[in-house]
Amino acid sequence: MYRCFVLDDEKYAADIMVSFIQKVPSLTVVESSGNVFSAIDKIIQGEVDLLFLDIQMPDLSGIDVLKIIGSRCKVILTTAYPDYALEGFEYDVVDYLMKPIAFDRFLRAVEKAQRQDIPVQPDKQEEAFLMLKGDRKHKYHKVFLEDIYYIESLRNYVKFVTAKGNVISYQNLAMLSESLPSPLFFRIHRSFIISTKHLSIVEGNRANIAGTFIPIGESYKKMFFDYLERGIINR
């Protein structure tokens, strides 16, 4: 709910603005008056979310009000003088409405103010991947980490078994074990690194990864089972 203050010394114009506000369920009127100092006080006290501000008033101009309140609330200017309105944009006003104000134009300004409260979603970062040297010169395979089921050592090569197929690459399993993020990847055998994301069953001395049982080596068992223990809830 936006708490609105209509600051306009022209009662007829202020009453029209109040009638517009009352038609919008997400808005409520805190006060409508030409009392600049009442408006400033309520804004400083944090009682106003949206100020409808006339620019030409007898005590202080709308520009003077903008200088005083800073960014304490959102402001929509209401004026019959577009030149003054342009000056208001130097103070980050949401919009300006030219008198006489039509209801549909009022609504667009309010929607613009409300859109400013919607957090901008950051661009989704590209998923982490590896560029794997292939079996031929200058050939590389792009493999996303989340697609990897397990990695198997084949002497001087390794086989990446992934959701999109197998990739043979000239790599060293020990070096991969050090460089891959833990605990997303876990070495459970001298010949195998598994993706814990795709781990479904551990049965005795073997682990099921995407339907394939991988042996758990004796020298890797304690560390692997210590990791599994942290996820057991019924002991």
Rank of each mutant, 00 (worst) to 15 (best):
A113F: 01
I118T: 12
Q121D: 12
E87T: 05
R115N: 13
L97E: 02
Y96S: 00
A113I: 01
K112P: 00
L86G: 01
A85M: 10
F106G: 00
Y84T: 02
A85N: 08
F89T: 08
E127Y: 10
D104C: 08
E111V: 06
G88F: 04
D104N: 14
D92G: 07
V120A: 14
M98K: 07
K112H: 06
Q116H: 08
R105F: 02
A113E: 01
Y91P: 06
K99E: 06
E87F: 01
V110N: 01
F103C: 08
A128E: 13
F129L: 04
Y96P: 00
K124M: 15
K124T: 14
P119Q: 11
F106H: 04
D123M: 15
A102D: 12
I101E: 03
L132H: 09
L130F: 13
Q125H: 10
D117K: 08
K99W: 05
L86H: 05
F106L: 01
I118A: 12
V120T: 14
D104Q: 13
V94Q: 00
Y84S: 04
P100Y: 06
K99L: 03
A128H: 07
A85E: 05
V110W: 03
P119V: 11
D95F: 02
L132T: 10
F129E: 01
Q116A: 14
R108M: 07
I101C: 07
Y84N: 04
E126I: 11
I118S: 11
E111C: 03
E126W: 06
Y96D: 00
Y84L: 12
L130R: 08
P122N: 14
V93R: 03
Q114S: 11
M98T: 11
V110L: 01
A85W: 09
D92H: 08
D104A: 12
R105V: 05
P100R: 07
K124V: 15
D92R: 03
D123V: 15
D117I: 11
L132Q: 10
V120N: 10
R115A: 12
R115K: 14
L130Q: 09
A128S: 13
V93I: 12
P122L: 15
A109E: 01
F106Y: 06
Q121F: 09
E127H: 13
P100E: 07
G88T: 03
E87R: 00
Q125E: 15
A128P: 08
Q116I: 11
R105D: 03
D95P: 03
E127D: 13
Q125W: 06
L86I: 13
E111N: 12
F129H: 11
P119L: 12
A102I: 06
A113D: 04
D95N: 13
E126M: 12
Q125Y: 08
A85H: 04
M98W: 07
D92K: 06
Y91L: 06
P100S: 06
A109M: 02
Q125P: 10
F106A: 05
V94P: 00
R108K: 15
Q125C: 07
Y91V: 07
E90L: 08
V120F: 09
